[in-house]
Amino acid sequence: MMFVVASIAVLVSMALVLARAILGPTLYDRVLAGNSFGTKTVLLLGLMGYVTGRPDFLDIALLYALINFTGTIAILKFFRYRTMAGSMDDMRGQS
């Protein structure tokens, strides 16, 4: 029962984060919304394993956390450097 209540709480917070991603207003709100939605997915997967009584998929949830982290880094790198394969030369036009 405890896990069901926790899952519902996570689902409610997912709805709130989704609202933030839709409403914005700034770019960083949406990046943060995407990132925290990934975190909520990890939590929900963990809880769902215990709701069904088979917590075998916890490692999958952990891998989602890794994907989420890498994805956020990729998006932010994109907005910094404007290219995917470009060098991470931070001094461009700055000195």
Binding site: M14, L18, A21, R30, A33, L45, M48
Partner: peptide
């Protein structure tokens, strides 16, 4: 706003992944 659409499509994928699990 296309950036919002990209972020929402990422969220959509995460939601459907949770659903598939």
């Amino acid at each position: 706003r296309l950036f919002a659409v990209v972020m929402l499509s990422g969220i959509y994928s995460l939601l459907s992944a949770a659903f598939f699990v």
